[in-house]
Design a protein around this nucleic acid. Structure first.
Lengths: 342, 342
DNA sequence: AGGATTATTGTAACCAGTTACATTATGTGC
DNA sequence: GCACATAATGTAACTGGTTACAATAATCCT
């Protein structure tokens, strides 16, 4: 048996040897095939496929300085809230030849900085992250490395990095005004943890009203279905009777719907429920959920596009505020209390 | 004004120059600091921080052949089904110093092969993917490159790659036997698209029974909440009356619950609803969903661990079948029809 | 004291590509 | 037939790290 040479991945020099050309020619076949004579090119291509040659991204990256990797920092993927957007980002980045590395941070600011550093260590050429509330270590890092970074899910044209998102405050205000128009005056506002979360804070701020006849009760629970059910439990402990639940996340609204059903409280006859996000399932609940449609996927695509172009050609994207839309469905109706008042 | 030299990222040689040591010493400070004298080390570290030096992962990768990147191929992130597992994978990989690149394939086998090639092009050292139904191009690629690949969400010890998952067939059988024990005999089995999806097929196969008194009706709909509502609509078109819905995905079960509520069909009094997966929200629905708990997160962690070790030390993980568990909650109860029959 | 051992640091080759520049061959114009 | 432009290919330097080996200095042992 012939002593098989240890098999290792073929490199450019191997290909050059087999095709009896120089390394430069092989490189040209890979990068600008048109300048190579057809005959030579075919010989090289044959050698490439014979050897199963596969250019090393690392070696390429060392020259070009390009890794074609974008990093995303997200709190969690365990609800549809980010997963949908991340998928859109990933899909759009692919069109630009970029790969997406996802790092989950669990809302922990310190972990966020640590993960960001890891992303840059592996050569991420751009970062994408939701919201503007991050720790200084992260900002320092971005400043030092001058890596293009875009913020999603939030809009603030004055922010240090381009924000490509939506107006959380306006979304919440839109939801609130819908409820007010329906005559609701005693409203439970269900929201997720506000700490370190500008989106939640903006939404909470957005529901504010100076109408003296409106009573708002804020209930902070987890950003989960269970959090929604908890909110109803909390609400039932209050002395006040609510005529509407405004959940600033659809996920919580799902929980609210379930828990109200459990308690035999009819939606929207006894109480209205309003969401905010418009998840894929929100139109299929019972009753179907009135909500504010956030442009989650469109935002993901736009952010991916802006970041890709920024990395490629240095043109920093301008901040963008994508429109929200009120989706009136079955879960909201004129207040019973209002009717009584009449 | 002194002509500022164009600022570019500092490299190892720059650091060596500033610290007045050789490149080898700088490299040692980075990789085995203990062999460098304290005084020298501090000088180098000072230079590193002064220059904001940041070693290039690409250059490192070119030598070691290591990129510390794992690729994941998933159909979609737009439901909790994969997102949860992916998050667990990502978290566990981090412990091993690996980063996760996610590529979504949209259940399209051709796209899957294309994306896999891209993952390998950027230097992924391992692949992770759900299920065993993939196109030959993908298998060829894995064979040619000999990249470690593990399959999740499925268990088949005889499969060419290690499967780290659960027994889909048994999970479905478990769900079915629960319904049978409760006396249900006329069961609508709601499942997602079976084409190119071994998990769905195994689940569908798992519900089979040879009992002559059991009537199964299979309803194929989308793997979404809306798909669940569709299933109920389809079911209502059938002449038969069902005493239970067995949804082989909790996502669909959510839709079924909503649509039954819409129709005023009481669960579990009029009809039982059984899920399969146990998503985070499944215990908070109304009624809370009886389901089979799949070890999604544990599986993610284990697969990440096995793949990391395989890549690091060449020890291929053994296939693993993690246990499913029947979660009896409120949505299932003895069949009304059975009671009548008695 | 002198040779051996050990601790530190330096030199230069190497990884797998890209690319500036040089070389050679071919075609064109006069 | 010769100068010149153009096309195709080759040579070698370069990217930014790692590391084998060499060199030097300091310490140990008899």
């Amino acid at each position: 048996m012939a002593p098989k040479r240890e098999k290792k991945r073929a490199n450019l020099r191997d290909v050059a040897r087999v095709a009896e050309v120089s390394v430069a020619t092989v490189s040209r076949v890979l990068n600008s095939p048109d300048v190579v004579q057809k005959e030579t090119r075919e010989r090289v291509e044959k050698a490439i496929s014979e050897l199963g040659f596969h250019p090393s991204a690392a070696a390429r990256a060392i020259n070009s300085g390009r890794t074609k990797i974008i990093g995303a920092l997200v709190p969690t993927l365990d609800s549809d809230i980010f997963a949908l957007t991340i998928e859109a980002v990933e899909n759009r980045l692919e069109d630009f030849g970029f790969s997406l590395v996802v790092a989950t941070t669990g809302e922990d600011p310190d972990k966020e900085a640590k993960r960001a550093k890891e992303l840059l260590d592996i050569g991420a050429e751009g970062l994408i992250m939701p919201g503007t509330t991050h720790c200084d270590a992260l900002y320092d890092l971005i400043e030092r490395t001058r890596v293009p970074a875009v913020v999603i899910s939030y809009y603030d044209p004055a922010f240090r990095y381009p924000t490509i998102g939506y107006d959380n405050r306006e979304a919440a205000a839109l939801a609130m005004s819908h409820l007010l128009e329906l005559g609701h005056r005693n409203i439970a506002v269900v929201h997720g943890p506000a700490q370190n979360n500008d989106r939640t804070r903006a939404r909470v701020a957005g529901v504010a009203t100076d109408r003296a006849d409106v009573q708002l009760t804020f209930l902070e629970t987890d950003l989960t279905i269970a959090g929604g059910t908890d909110a109803v439990k909390q609400a039932s402990g209050e002395s006040r009777v609510f005529d509407a639940f405004l959940c600033v996340s659809d996920v919580q609204a799902f929980g609210v719907l379930f828990e109200l059903q459990r308690r035999g409280i009819a939606v929207p006859d006894d109480v209205s429920v309003m969401g905010l996000h418009d998840l894929p399932g929100s139109s299929s609940t019972f009753p179907s959920l009135s909500t504010i449609r956030l442009p989650a996927q469109k935002m993901g695509r736009l952010a991916a596009e802006g970041l890709a172009k920024w990395v490629e050609s240095g043109t920093r994207p301008s901040p963008a505020c994508l429109p929200n839309a009120l989706m009136v469905r079955e879960s909201t109706a004129p207040s019973r209390l209002k009717a009584k008042r009449k």
